[in-house]
Amino acid sequence: MFAPGHFGELAALVPFELVDAVLEETRSMQRRLRALPSRVGVYFLLAMCLFPEVGYLLVWQKLTASLSALPVVTPTTKALRDLRRRVGCAPMRRLFEVLSGPLAQPATPGVRFGTYRIVSFDGCSSLKTPDTVRDRAWLGSPGHGGYPLLELMTLVETGTRALIGAVFGLTSEGESSYARRLLHLLTSDMLVL
């Protein structure tokens, strides 16, 4: 049912072959035939990033909208949650590592200053996480009954906004500490703003 091309633009940007290779490399491929294979789980997680404010079922409907000619059964919220847990974070991390990096070609306008590729660090410390025991144990308990917050630091190619790298963790550690973790991604042809 979930053949190449069935996920529209998402499959065009992240080919099935790449997803399958990442799943094999991270040993996250399902071991038996399933109605919701691991490959579908990766695309579901990517779609969740595109639509962060909606629930599992609405994300699923958006993801499978192009399958209207096929008899697609909508899975339960529990089935989608289990799929998300089964896939885990290792394939998503590896997929990011494969796809991240500068995109601009040497002649792309607006991405260079002389011979230097322009990049910048960008941090954010207001990402809310679910208020769970596990997140509070890792991130600490927020004051005033709020949600635990996550610090995100990215290294970005400024002209294309392509992510070169990203790290995240406790807000108490600070942006400078997280930026240092991305220094290994800088090359001699980059100018940091």
Results as ranks from 00 to 15, higher is better:
residue 176 S to V: 10
residue 2 F to G: 02
residue 8 G to L: 04
residue 155 L to H: 06
residue 108 T to Q: 04
residue 158 T to H: 01
residue 140 G to E: 08
residue 43 Y to V: 00
residue 115 T to K: 15
residue 132 T to G: 10
residue 111 V to F: 02
residue 92 M to K: 04
residue 91 P to R: 00
residue 2 F to A: 03
residue 33 L to F: 06
residue 47 A to C: 11
residue 27 R to T: 06
residue 117 R to E: 05
residue 101 G to Q: 03
residue 47 A to W: 05
residue 32 R to M: 03
residue 52 P to Y: 06
residue 92 M to Q: 05
residue 142 P to G: 09
residue 65 A to S: 13
residue 131 D to P: 05
residue 33 L to D: 07
residue 56 Y to T: 00
residue 81 R to F: 05
residue 165 G to I: 06
residue 187 T to V: 14
residue 7 F to A: 00
residue 119 V to T: 01
residue 192 V to C: 11
residue 173 E to R: 15
residue 114 G to H: 12
residue 167 V to D: 14
residue 181 R to V: 05
residue 135 D to S: 14
residue 156 V to H: 01
residue 38 S to Y: 02
residue 143 G to T: 11
residue 138 W to L: 11
residue 72 V to D: 09
residue 56 Y to I: 02
residue 44 F to W: 01
residue 164 I to N: 01
residue 33 L to I: 07
residue 85 R to M: 09
residue 100 S to M: 07
residue 78 K to L: 11
residue 168 F to D: 12
residue 17 E to N: 10
residue 170 L to M: 10
residue 24 E to C: 06
residue 32 R to N: 05
residue 50 L to W: 10
residue 69 A to K: 13
residue 130 P to D: 14
residue 114 G to Q: 12
residue 105 Q to K: 13
residue 144 H to M: 14
residue 137 A to S: 14
residue 133 V to D: 09
residue 169 G to D: 07
residue 178 Y to I: 07
residue 165 G to E: 05
residue 136 R to W: 08
residue 96 F to A: 15
residue 125 S to F: 13
residue 79 A to C: 04
residue 29 M to L: 12
residue 163 L to M: 13
residue 62 K to Y: 13
residue 71 P to A: 15
residue 69 A to M: 09
residue 41 G to C: 02
residue 68 S to H: 15
residue 37 P to I: 04
residue 118 I to C: 03
residue 86 R to Y: 02
residue 146 G to E: 15
residue 32 R to Q: 08
residue 46 L to M: 13
residue 64 T to K: 04
residue 181 R to P: 01
residue 58 L to M: 10
residue 56 Y to C: 03
residue 99 L to V: 04
residue 23 L to P: 02
residue 169 G to H: 08
residue 110 G to H: 09
residue 88 G to W: 02
residue 115 T to S: 15
residue 118 I to H: 00
residue 125 S to L: 08
residue 125 S to H: 07
residue 5 G to I: 06
residue 8 G to C: 08
residue 43 Y to N: 02
residue 94 R to L: 07
residue 56 Y to K: 06
residue 83 L to A: 00
residue 18 L to G: 02
residue 4 P to Q: 10
residue 108 T to M: 05
residue 162 A to M: 11
residue 12 A to Q: 13
residue 94 R to N: 00
residue 146 G to I: 13
residue 2 F to C: 03
residue 139 L to T: 03
residue 66 S to Y: 05
residue 134 R to K: 15
residue 53 E to F: 10
residue 27 R to L: 10
residue 171 T to D: 10
residue 60 W to L: 05
residue 28 S to C: 10
residue 97 E to S: 14
residue 109 P to C: 04
residue 91 P to D: 00
residue 93 R to F: 09
residue 185 L to G: 03
residue 15 P to E: 05
residue 55 G to A: 06
residue 105 Q to W: 12
residue 119 V to D: 00
residue 99 L to G: 02
residue 46 L to Y: 08
residue 51 F to W: 12
residue 77 T to N: 09
residue 83 L to T: 01
residue 30 Q to T: 07
residue 58 L to I: 05
residue 134 R to N: 12
residue 4 P to A: 09
residue 49 C to G: 13
residue 19 V to N: 00
residue 176 S to I: 11
residue 5 G to S: 09
residue 71 P to I: 08
residue 29 M to E: 06
